[in-house]
Design a protein around this nucleic acid. Sequence first.
DNA 1: AGGCTATTTATACACTTGCACAACAACGCC
DNA 2: GGCGTTGTTGTGCAAGTGTATAAATAGCCT
Lengths: 215, 215
Amino acid sequence: MSARRKFRREGEERRRQDLIDATLDSVAEHGLEGATLRTIALRAGVTAGLIRHYFPGKEDLLQEAYATLMGRMTEQAKAALAMEDASPRQRLAAFVTANLDAPIIDQRVFSLWATFIGRAGADPTLARAHREGYLGFRNEVEAVVAEVLAAERRKPDAAELRHHAIAINAIIDGLWIEGCLAGEMFSPGELAAIGIKAVEAELGLGPLELKGGNQ
Amino acid sequence: MSARRKFRREGEERRRQDLIDATLDSVAEHGLEGATLRTIALRAGVTAGLIRHYFPGKEDLLQEAYATLMGRMTEQAKAALAMEDASPRQRLAAFVTANLDAPIIDQRVFSLWATFIGRAGADPTLARAHREGYLGFRNEVEAVVAEVLAAERRKPDAAELRHHAIAINAIIDGLWIEGCLAGEMFSPGELAAIGIKAVEAELGLGPLELKGGNQ
DNA sequence: AGGCTATTTATACACTTGCACAACAACGCC
DNA sequence: GGCGTTGTTGTGCAAGTGTATAAATAGCCT
């Protein structure tokens, strides 16, 4: 009667990934407090003991899960800047749009981000991870801004450029939060439109078509 | 030898407030997971059992703590708009500044906000509380924006006004986050300056002194 | 097919958690 | 001053936590 549970041996990489995904799901659903080893294991379809086989402790699992999350977020965000054959201004607009539409606007990802970042004040490791991700993101923004202004024959100094990047970063972040927390209050594409207009206003860019502007 | 601990009977309101403050401190420092009844009680200078005397359960305590936090945040934020004898534009600038300088820019408050808001996706009560706070805030912004534009003889329609409010809200939120998470990267007043410039750009306001502007 | 090994399960354990309850003592009232 | 009320403490408990470790078995190699 000792019916021991059947199981399959998955590859190491696969199991680690499954466990990390199960961890992120658990955290998103029940918060850090509710993400217990047993909950995570249940979600991953294994028993709790197995986790210790792949991770030294719970803390390590959480850390790797957060790193994975950040990696996915920044990867998706930067991908929008990759368009080769487009004007700087178009690329900037595409970047803003990419950050303010699905799948970046996502309540689950936001919950994860907020839950983890809430501990940045107490956890220096987390704080540094965020700092690096943030600076990387801002540098990308700054680079595109430089290109956009160069195309307009404007020569901003370093401080000006930095301020623009900070402001644009804030616009994107702020709208991202609004969209994640109250997505149904905005029609599709509305946030992106607001974002593009705000960013172009920040950079002092006039409307694209100079003639025929009624209003 | 049964040296029972000495104690004082505090007023009910005082005790509740102390417990709530101790709860917020605990959450800010150790996250929701680390905020146990015993930790909270220790911080409040009482024993754990007492909490049950004032709150039906831990969940209720956390809920009240969150409500208190939100109340303080919005109260401080709105207070900046109260200036009576000032031009709309000055009041808007003061509002932005108030939200981007101490004591609103504060890592502890941010940690609390993030920790709680991270559960908004799973907790409808929290989600609604946030929604109301957010809309209240945005309506305030919208009202000032309307005044500012009116003073400039501009007559925006409702949609335009709404978009401005959303964008300005995003700018403030985004800069607030940047400041809380990496405050030492910005010189004092820098975020506020960036914010004001960004907001005025969003509204299409020219520089205040039209003549003599030597860059 | 049969054995080896490392993945996986299952159980145990010390500890913490939220909650319940009885004993106690601080303070207001007479 | 004594007394009753009730705010407060201390202890207990069942459930759940992370971790440790022994037992089992799936899948590969020959």
